Computed example of a mutant assay.
Amino acid sequence: MTDAGVAAEHRRQDPSEFRVALALPRQGPAGIFGLECRAAAELAAAEIDAAGGVAGRRVQFVHVDAGGDPAAVATTIGDLVTAGAVDAVTGWHLSNARQAIAKVVEGRIPYVYAAAYEGGETSDGVLCSGEVPGDQIIASLRWLRTELRLRRWFIVGNDYVWPRGSAMATRAGLEGSDIAILGERFVPLGFDGPVGWEDILVDIEAADPDGVITLLVGSDAVRFNRAFADAGLDATVTRFSPFTDETVMLASGSASTRNLFISAGWFAGLASASAAEFSTGFARSFDLFNGTGPAGVSVAPQPGTMAETTYSGMHLLAGIATTSVPTVEDARRAFDGWGWDSPHGPVDLRRGAARHPVHLAVARGVELRVIARVR
């Protein structure tokens, strides 16, 4: 499927195609998720096409690297929209990119943002299909308080809108409870260097928390997990993350995941027919688009929550269509109230907030074992 530059050159789309700007990260700390998200999007597109397409049109992706500067990403997508080269936008990417993209597409074409986020997005024609902090973070902290008596937390996050907004929402959501946030540290995206992590680990030790809430992205989360374990803090301090998946677990390594809990709507270990069906389809799609091994030998990893939300976001985008390809008016209607089935269960969208089933898992080496449903 097409690259953004090629699509901009052609400027006029084939009327038999539903052309979607698929914004996924290929670089930066979130680039670790790019291959799995593409495989999931391609699986959704194949399923949609097999069911008759979108208003009779087949899905055609125009690929946009969403891992670079948010303003540059938004400019690329804005140029595609102005050229009439795309009908809609979707994909998994960070909230700083979402904010920039929303400004250039608002009221022009529908945009489904397929990632857990901090909440509050109301731009015209924009649908956010991922989990929000109240369902994902607050519910998990309350479970950990009740079941494991973890009450005192320290936040470590990247310094951009999602971690900052999620930390703020977490503090607000915990008001009136006996769960306390002792301190916060935020680091730039792409943060590296052992001295930097050591400084943060010293602050954590000084605060003496029961646990650390990690609001870190991709490879930054991997580096923190390794530094945390190397310092021996994993023996006595619990970690909790709402933004870690199986890919990050594998990259962190089994020696770096002790006392680590993860919350999300999706986990590859969910025991349901729809979850198994998605995992099987994902493996085929991953091998088709990303595989490098011998024919017939799968190299697909387990699909993480980033892949599953990308898949579900594409199905949501196609599902809101009426007699034509999806329009801003269709997105407005869905914003007010919509529902769809995902591989992790039914999701309801009301006034722009997507309510998901949310599960809590604990690390066992590089595997994630689901231990509770917290919402």
Rank of each mutant, 00 (worst) to 15 (best):
A167D: 01
W153T: 07
I137L: 14
I213C: 09
E36A: 14
A283S: 11
W153P: 11
V161P: 05
G218Q: 00
G5T: 08
I320S: 02
Q60W: 02
C37D: 12
V20L: 09
G190H: 07
G84K: 03
D178F: 09
L174T: 01
Q99S: 09
F282M: 04
A268Q: 07
L144A: 10
G232N: 00
V20G: 11
W153M: 09
A55D: 02
I109R: 01
D245N: 10
G107E: 05
V195Y: 04
V328F: 05
H344I: 00
R185A: 10
L317Y: 04
A268F: 13
T247E: 11
I138V: 15
G67V: 00
Q27H: 08
A331L: 07
Y111I: 00
F286N: 00
V366M: 13
V347H: 11
C37P: 05
E367L: 11
I371M: 04
G337M: 05
F224Q: 03
L215C: 12
A307S: 14
R142Y: 10
Q13T: 10
N158L: 05
P29K: 04
D79C: 00
E47K: 13
A172Y: 04
W338V: 09
S312Y: 01
L174W: 01
S272M: 05
P25K: 08
D69P: 07
I101Y: 01
F243G: 13
V64M: 04
L316F: 12
H93V: 05
I181H: 04
V370R: 09
G291F: 01
L148C: 08
T82W: 02
A354V: 08
F186E: 06
